[in-house]
Simulated scan of single mutants.
Amino acid sequence: MRLNDYLKLSWNNFLRNGFKSIAPITIITLSIIILNIILSLFSSITASVNTTVIENQSLKLIEISSNSENELTSGSFKKLNEIDNVVTAFPKIEAFVGVEYKNSKTTTNLVGVNDKGLEYFTSNKDKMINNNQIVINSSLADELASNDQIKISYTVKVKEGEGIRKTKNTTIQSKFDQFYLDNYPDDVSLGSIDFVEKFNADFLGLPLKDYRKNLTYEFGTVIVNDVENLTQVANDIEKLGYDTGYSLKASQSIPLVAKIIIAIGGIILVVLLVFSGVSIASVIGQSLRNRYKEIGVMRTFGYEKSHLIKLFSIEVLFISLISFVISIISSFIIIELLNSYLEKSIGVNFDFSVNMTWIQI
């Protein structure tokens, strides 16, 4: 028989079976819909946990502060950089400056960051910060782009209580989206430590070399290689006599709990996938067993075993394709309704949303 004959006979058998065809389609469709929804929920939870905890660069930052007994100096940061699992440690240097571009003006808190720390602030987008350039906060500079020339305005003290404004030409190196930073405002832009300290030195009317003589710092930043090492690093810093503060201090077990949730989700997904596959195979197998008499009749008319296998395989293919189309469309609709419910009723603003990926399809 030709392929066209197999297709026609299988389609006629499919239509003639009526309810017997609808039953496996319904069961398979429901199985796939349930699997898709659970898969989507767990994959979205996993993605959310990865973003907010496991891969969240901001959680790797520890703010350190001096106290009456121990001051932070350049020597202090050399010791801090020697602690196990510390990527880098540097002083917290800030300068409040104006940003002028064409006819627009805004202000920003320019924070000094070293090269090792830069990628943690910009989510791996920048590996090095150039002198006389800044990485500007994207919320402050919609119209600005990389390599744009700008002017930075800042105050130079003339005498106590009086100052004049000066400007400095500089360039936008890139833009970054600021994440939540403890004890920082919402308008942080980034520059090299040398670049930012020059503004503070100019404010006092000192050369940078003189400004740095016997310089002490109130705060500093330590970046840890993994959130699971935060507690250990913080304890080591406190042993040196400095105070610490970090986002996970009140919830030190969150990273471990997050990984456990991901692992449990993965196990459940594998079990569901196997169960769904076995259930679908069982439904199709039962459907064929219910048609033994029909198979016997077809054999008496001269159908070979190979003919029957091809006929039923194509019929199963029809069932599978119909189930697939209905289940995928239904899954998308249900997931969109679920997202709509989360957004309107629970108030989730799509920081967490349920999605169906091409891998599921």
Rank of each mutant, 00 (worst) to 15 (best):
S276V: 15
A281D: 07
V257L: 13
I260E: 14
L248E: 07
I262S: 05
S287Q: 00
V257R: 08
R291D: 03
F275T: 12
G265C: 09
V271K: 02
Q286D: 06
I254Q: 04
I268Y: 12
I268T: 09
V270P: 00
V283A: 10
L256P: 01
E294V: 01
S282L: 12
I295Y: 07
I254E: 04
L273V: 07
L256S: 13
L273I: 11
L256I: 14
A281S: 15
L256Q: 13
R289E: 08
A250M: 10
L248P: 00
K249R: 10
K259C: 03
A250P: 04
K249V: 09
R289Q: 10
V270R: 01
V274P: 01
G265A: 13
L272F: 15
I261G: 02
I254L: 13
L269W: 04
S276N: 12
I262Y: 04
I267A: 14
G285K: 12
Q252N: 09
V257C: 04
S282E: 09
L273Q: 02
I261V: 15
I261C: 02
I262H: 06
S251F: 15
R291V: 03
Q252K: 14
M298T: 06
S279W: 08
I268L: 15
S276Y: 08
V257Y: 15
K249G: 06
I284W: 00
V297H: 06
A250G: 12
S287G: 03
S279R: 06
I262Q: 11
I280M: 11
Y292D: 08
K293G: 06
G277Q: 02
V283Q: 07
I280E: 00
I260R: 10
M298R: 15
G296M: 07
F275S: 11
G296A: 13
I254K: 03
G277E: 05
I267P: 05
G277C: 10
Q252G: 08
G277V: 06
F275M: 11
G277Y: 11
A281T: 12
R299C: 06
K249H: 06
L256A: 13
G296T: 02
G277R: 00
S279Q: 11
A258F: 05
L272Y: 06
I268C: 09
R289D: 06
S287N: 11
K259Q: 15
S287K: 00
V274M: 07
L273H: 01
V278K: 03
V297W: 10
V257T: 13
M298N: 02
L269C: 10
S276P: 06
Y292P: 01
S282P: 02
Y292H: 09
I254N: 03
V283N: 04
L248N: 07
Y292R: 13
R299F: 05
S279D: 05
V271R: 03
I280Q: 00
E294N: 04
I267L: 14
L248S: 03
G296H: 04
A281Y: 14
I254M: 08
I260H: 09
L273F: 10
I295Q: 03
V283W: 00
I264D: 07
F275N: 08
R299G: 07
V278R: 03
V278N: 08
G285F: 05
K249C: 04
V297I: 15
G285D: 02
V274D: 00
L256V: 15
E294C: 00
I268A: 13
N290Q: 14
A258N: 02
V278H: 05
